[in-house]
Amino acid sequence: MNYIWYFLIIISIIFAAFNATLDEVTKAIFSGCELSIKIGLTLTAIMTFWLGIMKIAEKSGIVEFVSKLLTPVTGKIFPEVPRNNPVIGDIAMNFSANALGLANAATPMGIKAMQGLQKINKDKNSASNSMCTLLAMNTAGFQLIPATVLAILAANGCKNPTEIIVPTLIVTSVAFVSAIVMARLFQTVFPPQKVEMEDKNV
């Protein structure tokens, strides 16, 4: 991540110097901060709400129910997580929320699942295999109904926006499965590193 971040910034500045957009890049630093506040605060509030709801779901046994329902699948995808660990429930809820297109609900649940995985992670600085798989599931963005896209299409006067649902479902399923398969393949190529690689200068 250190190199990627460095690369993003350096390339912006160098390119801007040639492209005469340096002033815009400078402005972007501040507008980026503004945007972070907006996203950060919204995210925090949404997360607060959903973690509250999730706690209720947990106490009333709903999380356990959903996780039992999905255990055959999650067990295969996350072989390193003990079956009775509550994190399985969080992963199941995260997946369900994603599938329903509830991005606002899915993120808090995914973060909760990530925290659960961190608890059983041996090296706290480095992502475990299960964490990478969970991330792959989320970045692939599997969803049954792309609500935002449908809304934009409808707003622009599309006659039948719903006709994109099936094609989208095909694409997203393929991307989702391939993300999990790739995560599996890569975990053998990039084995967990030793702790000595600790955080260099950014």
């Binding site: 973060i111 964490m131 692939a140 955080d199």
Partner: peptide
């Protein structure tokens, strides 16, 4: 966001997987 929440610094292959999945998409 996900890794930030738990303080993971070494992403290992997570980014690579994400980008590959995007390309597949």
């Amino acid at each position: 966001v996900y890794f930030g929440a738990v303080g993971i610094k070494k992403y290992r292959y997570a980014l690579l997987t994400g980008i590959c999945a995007d390309i597949v998409g």
